[in-house]
Design a protein around this nucleic acid. Structure first.
Lengths: 122, 122
DNA sequence: CGGTATCCTTTACGATACTG
DNA sequence: CAGTATCGTAAAGGATACCG
């Protein structure tokens, strides 16, 4: 160890859990979507390909509890709930979008690397 | 949809899988560790709290196949294998470290948010 | 519409034992 | 040392049905 290693290297640290919320499969997609504008529940569901109601609800709750997402429920019938980012959420989402865009730009490189890897071990 | 949404919003896109490799529970920790220096297998295992042999091997293989990690096996007895980052891996790891550091710095904010959230619904 | 509750399947993960 | 193989458990995730 050369310097002070972050807390995240301890198995029980709080930051690992938070990190898993923002970098989770659905967390990433929710955050980036909300960076563009606010969404209603079923709008978000349609926007994010393949997410189930259960997972979307669970993801939104985790992000809301962590203070990244704001939930605005209007007491009307039929119910209307709008989800948006808090200032903290905007910061998180900006980081996440940055990685995502980088990954998208490197897809060809990764595909080449995989061909190389697979070719060697036939 | 206001502009062109990235491919990652389609359920079957290749970037989602790559993103999951680099942002996975163990992928994150491996990448950041290797940003500092190269590591041997069991060194890495000790460095990353709570990772099993199986998961570490699996994570390293996925990252190697994607072209982020270089595996240098020396044909000696006992075997010696050093893991390091490729140039592509350095880019990935830098992004990942950036988010991780941000999350670490915001742990108190998140903990406050959770207290608020939990208090309201008692 | 915006969820929750339930059930079920699949995947992730860890522990242990073993091998070159 | 650096893994692989096998097994069992726990968690993630999806489908469906239902409710305010």
């Amino acid at each position: 160890m050369t310097a002070a290693w972050p807390d995240v290297y301890r198995a029980d640290c709080p930051s690992r859990v938070i990190l898993e919320h923002v970098t989770s499969r659905w967390g990433v997609l929710v955050l980036i979507a909300l960076l563009d504008r606010s969404y209603r529940f079923s709008e978000l569901r349609r926007h994010i390909g393949g997410v189930s109601e259960k997972m979307l609800a669970q993801t939104l709750q985790a992000l809301e509890r962590d203070g990244f997402v704001h939930r605005a429920a209007q007491p009307v019938i039929p119910p209307r709930v709008d989800y948006s980012l808090t200032p903290l959420g905007v910061e998180a989402a900006t980081h996440v979008r940055s990685i995502t865009e980088w990954v998208e730009s490197k897809v060809p490189d990764v595909q080449d690397a995989r061909l190389q890897y697979d070719a060697v071990r036939t």
